[in-house]
């Protein structure tokens, strides 16, 4: 699978990649994006199988990216990895078409719970 990881923090992208591996999801191609706009462009250019996106990013938020993708006809599986995991935000994410929301801080078990069945 090709997995696109969108986060404006390079350090956090590294932590997400490391946690994916710790959760057993290694041997996948990883593409990185540094904000929502970059993620949108890379979904179009790279055609990933899954997007793991931060919510709060400059230029375009993760939610705006998801909404733009759906408006453009993309149905790419999309999940959030964000420091905000309130009920309100989970509802917003689900309403926009996200499969899951992983709240930071997370560990490999959190990833397994959210990604089991999503990553094959």
């Amino acid at each position: 699978m090709k997995i696109l990881i969108a986060d404006d923090s390079r350090v956090m992208r590294q932590i997400v990649i490391r946690t994916l591996r710790q959760a057993g999801y290694d041997d996948h191609d990883i593409v990185e994006a540094e904000d929502g706009r970059d993620a949108f462009d890379k979904v179009k250019a790279e055609d990933p199988d899954l997007v793991l996106s931060d919510w709060n990013m400059p230029n375009m938020t993760g939610l705006e990216c998801l909404q733009a993708l759906r408006s453009s006809g993309s149905g790419v599986p999309f999940g959030f990895v964000t420091s905000e995991g309130s009920v309100e935000m989970r509802e917003k994410a689900a309403d926009a078409g996200a499969l899951f929301l992983i709240a930071k801080p997370f560990n490999e078990d959190t990833f397994k719970d959210a990604l089991d069945g999503v990553i094959v």
Partner: peptide
């Protein structure tokens, strides 16, 4: 950002979180 996001979660809302 991670500590702030979780502090926000225990405060009354709706609230908005800025960028670090």
């Amino acid at each position: 950002n991670v500590v702030g996001g979780n502090v926000k979660a225990v405060l009354p809302g709706p609230s908005f979180l800025g960028l670090p």
